[in-house]
Structure formats: structure tokens, C-alpha cells
Simulated assay, not measured.
Amino acid sequence: MNFALTVKGSMLEGFYPAGWNMEKIDRCCANSPESIRERQPFWNKQFQPIPCEEVAEFDVKMGHEISWQIRKSKEEGRKVAFIFPAGPMGMYKWAVYFLKEWGVDCKHVYGFNMDEWSDGEGWTLPSDNPGSFQYAMEHAFYGPLGEYSVPVEQRHFATARTLPAYSEKIAALKAEGAELITVFGIGRMMHIAFWEPHFGGEYASDEEWSKETHRIGAQLHPLTIEQNAITSFKSRTPLVSCRANTIGPGLFLQSDYIIGGCDGALGRGMQWQGLSLWTTLRHGPDRWLPSTFMPTMPGKLFFLKELAGPLGAELN
């Protein structure tokens, strides 16, 4: 029996996004772990999924990729714009390490945080609040870089005032020859930043959807809230906002290069990101599953090898 069919008529009907084909998503997850890197017709020729044995390897490789792209743009004498996430986070200490070891400063780097917790009007936490993404970035990346850091005026955070200006600022940088690099994790709901899958129902086509650059006070899916309760707030759901300011596909689909990460293993054989990884790599582009567009762009997606599965029932 395929239990994916039992969503209809259950309490979960209307909970999952209307555009999700649960049977197709399940088929994506039914492949053998060894086949996860098999190239798909919709992948960009320069897109690579890269397995990592453990979190330590994952952090080093992602940090190296970020710092290498910063170094490369420096050596080529051009500016570079980064869309940065506040998760995964372990990569930043290694990016700092490599940049300092190489003696490469970030005066040519322009950072745009992809999202931030907010209320319905887009008001965000104070920058000195440990729960804010700005606080996380300042303490994990910008601050530790010291004299090598991104100039303060080139650091942008997703406030209601600043986020709407991202598109114009990034366009101006690209006009000067800068590349746009998006660093990201994949959400449980296959979101990129906090651009949620249920937003797909507001648009008549993928093309219309793909033009949206941002959203203020975006309404988050319950599973996104629970994902963050588990990964960032030690299960304390009341600390997690139900809304956020976020970039949209009109920005992340402009990327010249992407650096993605999936490290959602919880230990003792438990994980939350295997379905998200497989769906991203196998489903094909669909606005109801934002992460499925990422393999269409050049870049790398680092993932913990155990996320490839096999996915299914297991005694713990």
C-alpha cells in the first residue's frame, strides 16, 4: 500500500501545499543511495552534488568553497555579491580560517543576508538579539574576520527597509561585472531562504513566480517553524517566529554560482533532510518546490552521505 495516497481525506489534507504530488515526491526518495549523484536532464552541466562523510568534513568543504570564490574574485580584480544564509553555520569559521591563512581580505565582497525573523509588518529582532540572523552573521563571519572583513557599509540585512533595495543594489553590482553567488541550505519544505512552497498557489505560472524578488513578513509553513525549533532553538517552538522577511526567486535565480548544503542528520539514525535532498535532485523544477530550481544553476551542493538513505523505517 502506498500511504502517500492516504493524505486525501485525512487531517493533513490542506496542510501540505496544494501543488505537491506526494506520489512523485515519494518516487524521488525511493532510489538507491548509490545513485544520488546520477546526472539528471534538468541539471546544469556545471552543477555538482558532493557527498561528505561527516559534519566536520561538510563544514570544511563548504567553508573552503566560500573562501575560494572570494579569493578567486579578488585575484580576478572584480567585485562579488554573496547572498548569505544563517544556516548552515559551521562553514563560516572555516571560511574565516582560509581567508586569514591566505591573507585575502573581503573589501570587494558585498553581503546580502537572505532572510530574517519578523512579525507580520516586517519588523525584525534587534541586531544584538542572539536569535537574530544579523547577530549570527556578525559573530560567526564578519566579526571573526577582523581586518579582513567585509566593510560595514557592504553588509546588508533583511529588514523591512533594506530588503526591498536588494534587487537594485545587486543589479548595479552585476552591471559593474560582479558575480552573484548564493549560499543556501534546503528547508524541510524544500524552501530556499524562507521562500515557502505554498506561495506557489499565488501565481499562474513558474515564470510569473520567478520574478518575485522578496517578501516582507512572509507566512511560514508549520513544518518550517518546527524545523527551526529543532535545529536552532533546542525544540522550544514558542521562540520561533511564524513570519520572516525573505528574498525570492527573482534574486536567487539570478545566481551566477551556487553553494548549497544539506547537513540535517540528528544522530542515532535520525534525520530530517533526506526527502528534501532527494526531491531537490530528482523532481525537476517546480514552483511548489523552490529548491528544485537550484540544480539548474552552476555550482555545488554539499550533503552528508547518510542523507542519501536508504530512506525508510528503521529501529533506533
Rank of each mutant, 00 (worst) to 15 (best):
Q154S: 08
H221Q: 14
T162Q: 10
E34A: 13
S73W: 00
R161E: 14
Q254Y: 01
P238T: 09
T6L: 08
Q273A: 07
P290W: 02
E138Y: 11
I186P: 02
I36A: 11
M89K: 07
A313I: 12
R236V: 04
P130F: 13
F98P: 04
M294H: 01
L307W: 04
E53H: 08
P33D: 02
H214V: 03
A158E: 00
S35V: 00
H156S: 08
G9F: 06
R215P: 14
R236C: 05
A4P: 04
L289N: 02
G264P: 08
R282M: 11
Y92N: 05
I192Q: 15
M270T: 13
L125E: 14
N21E: 12
W94D: 01
G185C: 09
D59H: 12
T124V: 09
P222E: 07
T124M: 02
M89E: 07
M270W: 09
T162P: 00
I83A: 05
Q273N: 05
C262W: 00
I258Q: 04
N245I: 00
V60N: 06
M297E: 03
G312P: 09
N2Y: 07
R161Q: 10
I70Y: 00
M11Y: 05
G250A: 13
S205I: 07
K8W: 01
Y97H: 14
V150G: 04
T213G: 09
M297G: 01
P41F: 02
S149N: 08
G90I: 07
M91N: 03
L315S: 15
G217N: 06
G284E: 08
L277T: 02
E306W: 02
L180S: 10
A171R: 03
F133S: 05
P51C: 00
G146F: 15
P130I: 11
F184D: 05
E153G: 04
W20G: 10
A18F: 10
I225H: 07
Q271W: 03
E153F: 00
T279R: 03
T296Y: 00
K100H: 11
E207P: 09
F84T: 11
P88A: 06
E101P: 02
A136F: 15
G19Y: 07
S235E: 15
T231S: 12
G120Y: 03
E38A: 13
K45N: 13
C242R: 14
